[in-house]
Design a protein around this nucleic acid. Structure first.
Lengths: 202, 202
DNA sequence: ACTACAGTGGACCGCACAGTCCATTACCAC
DNA sequence: GTGGTAATGGACTGTGCGGTCCACTGTAGT
């Protein structure tokens, strides 16, 4: 388990991570056990510890990384091409759709609360995700500036940060209440606000 | 434990809840044990089960309620008197200060993830908290309308929802990254956006 | 084909921790 | 002060679950 992984080994490892992710989403991190994961992935306990020598925590971390990667993947290609207002609207729709479908499961959130505090690993994964997400938003705003749809004077980073916060908040409220009203309101008002900034003085 | 609680009994119960809240904040819900709570509150195990017959879950729920109540209390009296722009700014400062002080501990969040799914109790607490919070924000916006600082046409609920989402998102990012940049940006832009709505055409 | 190591199976261990039980003490009512 | 119920102490139990061990099997390289 230090680099020497055959093709078969890699496949098994992947199978475990993906299966574990499913189990965690269904059962929740708190109540999911290694045995659950063994059953789901048809793996033996030795396999689990073979591929994740540090045990459950290492496995959870791997799942967290897996889930984090999925988040931005799901928003492609919209997120990386926010160069028109239509693109922003489409992206908005995708985000809302994705999180409405996800409902009250928050793989990353629960993972974070479980492993999070104390271990730097989980935090690093989330921080990196947020950074990349915000960077994409900022790039989108800048491309609107480049095409003259938004004035140059805009504080791009603050706007991107606020938008990211709007999403996170909307999602976390969706998570606890089951309703996507807040996510919609926050995104709509956030984008509208941005748009208004472009309409003042052509 | 069905109503019949002496003054002494009530005091003990309170002591347990408050002590448990401390322990949960420090150790995190995941790793806090009943023994930790026993030590902290100088209570015996029988006391714990005397006051919370359903065991750990009931205790966690009581703590969740306790923490939820604190959230809005901490923002008083500003939150309930949002009738001038100065009041909004002051409230903003209080919120930021409170959550910066809290740092990376999220009592309610972790409680929610631990008990949350599966039990309706925790969800109800959070839903109610959100409802009251948003209601306060909406009342603030309406009072600004009443004094003519904001136009009547405003979609008050959507504005309040967006603001609430902004806070939640800012806080959850503060929680994972340790930086309050997003909370500040989201609140500032949210309030600025609101304010701008009042400046268009007197 | 042999050899070395990755991959796999599954029995086994230990203990942390929620929850139970009963005995004892403090408190209130009358 | 006496009966009844609340409050408390603390030993005890049971087990769920993470983690270990060793033995067996498949497979790639020479």
């Amino acid at each position: 388990m230090r680099g020497q992984l055959t093709a078969k080994g890699k496949a098994t490892r992947r199978r475990i991570v993906e299966g574990a992710a499913e189990v965690l989403r269904e059962r929740g991190v708190a109540s999911a056990t290694l045995d659950d994961i063994m059953v789901r992935t048809s793996a033996s306990k030795s396999q689990l510890f073979h591929y994740f020598p540090d045990g459950k925590e290492e496995l959870l971390l791997a799942v967290a990384q897996f889930e984090a990667d999925r988040v931005l993947e799901d928003q492609q290609p919209y997120l990386s091409r926010l160069d028109s207002w239509e693109a922003w609207e489409q992206w908005r729709d995708v985000v809302i759709k994705r999180y409405e479908a996800q409902g009250d499961e928050c793989p990353l959130g629960s993972l974070f609360f479980q492993v999070g505090r104390s271990t730097p690993g989980a935090r690093a994964i989330v921080v990196e995700l947020m950074r990349r997400w915000q960077e994409n938003l900022a790039a989108g705003i800048r491309s609107l500036q480049a095409s003259g749809r938004l004035p140059d004077g805009l504080d791009v980073d603050a706007r991107a940060a606020a938008l990211l916060a709007a999403i996170q908040g909307g999602v976390s409220i969706l998570l606890s209440t089951g309703r996507s009203t807040h996510l919609r309101a926050a995104l709509d008002l956030g984008i509208a606000d941005l748009r208004r900034a472009g309409e003042t003085g052509p």
